[in-house]
Simulated assay, not measured.
Amino acid sequence: MLAFIGGTGLNQLPDFHVERIAEVQTPYQAAPVRIACGTLPGVSGQLCFLPRHGEGHTVPPHRINYRANIFALRESGVTAILAVNAVGGIHREMGPGVIAVPDQIIDYTSGRAHTFFDGELTDIDSPDRFTASVTHIDFTEPYTAILRELLLQSAKQSGVPVWSGGVYGATQGPRLESVAEVRRLQNDGCDMVGMTGMPEAALARELGLDYASVCLSVNWAAGLSDDVITMAGIREVLAQGMGQIHRLLITAAGLFREKG
């Protein structure tokens, strides 16, 4: 089953007919994770939708319980995740309004629970209970190739222009970056910067879930434009760009069902 993780600007999925709200208990927080399960027009079968920042967009990036979210999706029968991320553009092709399907990631976050295999025994009622054993996942390609190709094919079919590739720099947040920090990201080879790409991608890999990201550039990163970065400006780009993201996701869901 396919799931969408919605980020900033996609706290709700338009035209999504919610059939039930699954409340999934996990070992990683007291409250259950609420996952909307339902259907999209023209797409057969059920899908899941999880707003990354919680209902009403109330949870900042550094306080998101990524482990609980990813574990709950797996427990709900999800096998593949398409994640939506708002980013700042660094590469000259990543101006405001540009949509990208990144193929690499650099993690600059700190203090986040970033693995299920953290050396502590966890009693999880699951077929593959996690233990204290050391586990090293292969993260050579952070995003699942078949899901990336599905997104690119969906872009062609839906007429949504996307930039294929790019390195996502994941920063801690919730503040935006300084000019010097953006320079560092640029020197490191980052093409875009966001706050939610990690540890989400790695956790999905640890659980064997296919995972890919579609990113909307909502502003130039600090120092790359004379424009002042404002939330009003970001919201304006989000309002315009999320319509295209929505078309892309619907097409991707249809292709996912066709490919089985």
Score class of each variant (00 low, 15 high):
H17F: 08
H17S: 14
V18Y: 05
E19G: 04
E19R: 04
R20M: 04
R20S: 06
R20L: 04
R20N: 02
R20G: 06
I21K: 14
A22K: 15
E23G: 02
V24I: 13
V24R: 01
Q25T: 12
Q25N: 13
Q25R: 09
T26H: 05
P27N: 09
P27H: 04
Y28H: 12
Y28P: 15
Q29P: 01
Q29H: 07
A31G: 09
A31V: 14
A31D: 15
P32V: 04
P32T: 03
P32G: 01
P32H: 05
R34Q: 15
R34D: 09
I35W: 05
A36P: 13
A36G: 11
C37Y: 14
G38C: 02
G38M: 08
T39N: 11
L40Y: 00
L40T: 02
P41Y: 01
P41D: 14
V43Q: 10
V43C: 10
S44A: 12
S44T: 15
S44M: 12
S44Q: 14
G45K: 05
Q46M: 10
Q46H: 02
L47W: 10
L47Y: 04
L47G: 01
C48H: 14
C48I: 14
F49G: 00
F49H: 09
L50T: 03
P51G: 06
P51L: 07
R52P: 08
R52A: 09
H53W: 10
G54C: 06
G56P: 11
G56K: 01
G56I: 11
G56R: 01
G56N: 07
H57N: 02
H57Y: 01
H57I: 08
H57T: 08
T58S: 12
V59A: 12
P60D: 05
P61S: 03
P61C: 11
R63L: 11
N65L: 01
N65K: 05
Y66P: 02
R67C: 02
A68D: 11
N69A: 03
N69S: 07
I70F: 11
I70S: 06
F71Y: 13
F71G: 00
F71P: 02
F71L: 09
F71K: 03
A72R: 06
A72C: 06
L73A: 11
L73N: 00
R74A: 09
R74Y: 05
R74H: 14
E75I: 10
S76Y: 03
S76F: 07
G77Q: 01
V78L: 04
V78Y: 00
V78T: 10
T79H: 14
T79G: 15
T79P: 15
A80L: 08
A80T: 13
A80H: 08
I81Q: 07
I81D: 08
L82A: 09
A83K: 06
